[in-house]
């Protein structure tokens, strides 16, 4: 049940997206990187199209980069400030979407605390493209795509090749280690999907309480010995403790979490010199990642943020431009 391309479709998650579909996004994003270096950072690709931005949960980078991406593509952005909207008066998700839809939109970018909320919206307004900007513990597909994009960019630079020319080859057998609160992380679910689709070997390290139920059925290896796994990793991805989802009660305390699973300076020293460090943000410096490590030369954290814009431009462009007006 693999989806070959997101062109003209909603993007709800990465579990079903084929390798070709992922590479199409990454390659399209490469073409938009160049826009950033222009004096006038804008292309007319989505002129006359309307993108609604609907964030039920707080967000800094995802919201800003989506809205920036839409504007660089010349789309009109309807940005609903949920906190000061009718949602606060008890309006249901279905009615809110219907209201926005009535204004005439091509796509909605939504973040919501409930897993499956993006699926629900796609069911409510099947003629609108839904781009999931994070739903509960489920998926955060554009984060997974920008993580893969960033990693390919860094690997390609080092290898002296072009990212698009390399396809997925740089991921073959790549040892990706994801560390931290996997259970509550939608980023982990999207990252696991995109990295395994591209051919990487994914390992997970977490306290037993922060592994998701049924992880044995995931296409990953769960490692108990983090220190040994670090010496073998090509890239290590840190995840914060999602205390807003109750994960504070899953470990005895932050200090103990740092001791067992934080990327401290000592642990960082165990990494191969070629290994990269990634973090989807927001970082809690001193807990899952030491401040010095976050700023180390092999950390790709700032690049991940910067790449959010071209990758989200690619996603908006592919999902909307493939959509005929008559379909609405």
């Amino acid at each position: 049940m693999s989806v070959a391309s997101i062109r003209g479709r909603s993007l709800l998650g990465l579990a079903d997206l084929s390798r070709e579909g992922v590479l199409e996004v990454l390659d399209t994003a490469e073409t938009f990187v160049e826009v950033h270096s222009r004096e006038v950072k804008k292309v007319p690709a989505l002129r006359g199209r309307v993108v609604a931005s609907l964030f039920y949960e707080e967000s800094t980078r995802t919201r800003l980069s989506f809205e920036t991406a839409a504007k660089r593509l010349s789309a009109d952005v309807l940005s609903l400030a949920v906190a000061s909207s009718s949602v606060k008066k008890g309006e249901s998700l279905r009615d809110t979407i219907a209201t926005i839809d009535a204004l005439g939109i091509d796509a909605v970018v939504m973040r919501h605390a409930a897993s499956g909320a993006a699926e629900a919206v796609a069911r409510y307004v099947p003629h609108v493209r839904v781009i999931n900007a994070g739903d509960g513990l489920h998926q955060h597909p554009t984060q997974g795509l920008l993580d893969a994009f960033t990693l390919r960019q860094a690997l390609a630079e080092r290898a002296g090749v072009s990212g698009p020319d390399s396809g997925a080859s740089l991921f073959a057998g790549l040892n990706v280690l994801i560390v931290g609160d996997i259970r509550h992380s939608r980023v982990a679910r999207s990252d696991v999907a995109v990295y395994t689709t591209l051919g990487a070997r994914v390992r997970l390290a977490a306290p037993g309480t922060l592994l998701p139920p049924g992880v044995a059925s995931w296409p990953v290896e769960v490692v108990d010995d983090l220190d040994a796994a670090l010496t073998e990793a090509d890239v290590v991805c840190l995840l914060r403790l999602q205390r807003e989802r109750g994960s504070g009660t899953f470990v005895p305390g932050l200090a103990e979490f740092t001791r067992t699973h934080g990327l401290t300076v000592e642990r960082h020293a165990r990494l191969r010199p070629t290994a990269f460090v990634m973090h989807p943000g927001p970082m809690i410096r001193g807990v899952e990642i030491d401040s010095a490590v976050a700023d180390a030369p092999n950390a790709l954290v700032e690049r991940q943020v910067a790449n959010g814009v071209p990758v989200r431009m690619a996603v908006l462009y592919l999902t909307i431009a493939g959509l005929g007006r008559e379909a609405g």
């Binding site: 897993s115 739903d135 489920h138 998926q139 679910r189 139920p213 049924g214 044995a216």
Partner: peptide, 15 residues
Amino acid sequence: HEGALSGRLGLVGRP
């Protein structure tokens, strides 16, 4: 139900 499916869907499971 708590299991592989709940883990994948990101829904909290009732074991």
